[in-house]
């Protein structure tokens, strides 16, 4: 189906999927993870992807991040076909994967060591400009004073805050979040929604968020894609026009609850549609 926005200027696309199929496995074990998907994403979009498990949400993420090649079709990021050149995409998973031999600050500065133009001056700036940059981010996520700690000294919620810092430290144009708050308790999660929203509103990177939490999608996203069960397909593409900054009060408004109920209904339908096929 046609999933992109209509009449988009070519220059205003940061990521585009054209008739993308992704097939995993070989022979009789092969299955279609993503089926003829078209998608256009504009700079500054906050795209949340929801859908039943195994519907290819993470597959889209990996395609755009250049970690996976499409079996058929084309993926363009920042005007180039993915695979040609990487643009330094920020990424955060449910597992914070902080490196235990580095301090929290060193972990956060890791992308600066790899992504240009920062990498060129990393040795010179790591004690001055980059240090301050890391400290600034730590302050924004409420981790002031934890820069010198080691990852194992921090709780899961704190690690996930640091993980956000690491994903954003190099001011990426694209931010990939694969269920970043999935393992956190409700309160920490809601707190991190607000922090993430704030960070996003400052620099407006394009965000792809994979989540199972419909309230999370509705709270954060400017656009929500609902996907069908395997083979994955975008079945619904919805703009979220709730005013920002959204707060916890927003989540009690009728527009918000209507939206999440709608989403829930769509996903239940997607799940049921899968049953006869099995």
């Amino acid at each position: 189906m046609e999933a992109g926005l209509t009449s988009a200027m070519p220059t205003s696309r940061i990521a585009q999927l054209e008739n993308v199929n992704v097939r995993f496995g070989k022979g009789s074990n092969a299955f279609l993870a993503l089926d003829r998907t078209n998608l256009t994403v504009h700079p500054g979009d906050f795209v949340a992807m929801v859908g039943p498990s195994g519907c290819g949400k993470s597959t889209i993420l990996k395609l755009v991040a250049g970690l996976l090649r499409p079996t058929e079709g084309h993926v363009f990021v920042a005007g180039r076909e993915v695979g040609a050149e990487r643009i330094g995409i920020g990424m955060a998973f449910q597992n914070p994967t902080m490196l235990p031999w580095l301090t929290i600050r060193e972990n956060i500065m890791l992308p600066l060591k790899i992504v240009q133009p920062y990498a060129a001056t990393f040795r010179r700036d790591k004690r001055t400009v980059f240090y301050d940059r890391a400290e600034g981010l730590l302050a924004k996520v409420g981790l002031t004073g934890f820069g010198d700690r080691r990852p194992w000294e921090l709780s899961g919620g704190m690690l996930q805050r640091a993980n956000l810092c690491r994903a954003l430290v190099h001011s990426p144009k694209l931010l990939m979040l694969d269920e970043p708050f999935g393992a956190l308790d409700q309160f920490t999660r809601e707190e991190l929604w607000s922090i993430l929203q704030e960070l996003w509103m400052e620099t407006r990177p394009t965000v792809f968020l994979v989540t199972h939490d419909l309230r999370e999608a509705a709270f954060l996203a400017s656009r929500i894609l609902v996907m069908s069960a395997r083979p994955g397909r975008v079945t619904e593409d919805r703009q979220v026009d709730l005013a920002r900054p959204r707060t916890l009060e927003t989540t009690f408004q009728p527009e918000f609850t209507d939206l999440t109920n709608d989403l829930r209904r769509l996903i239940v339908e997607a799940r049921q549609a899968k049953e006869p096929a099995q």
Partner: peptide, 14 residues
């Protein structure tokens, strides 16, 4: 090596 850590680095262009 955790595949997720490798993905983070590869996405950065490492």
């Amino acid at each position: 090596t955790e595949p997720e850590m490798e993905d983070v680095l590869k996405a950065l262009g490492a």
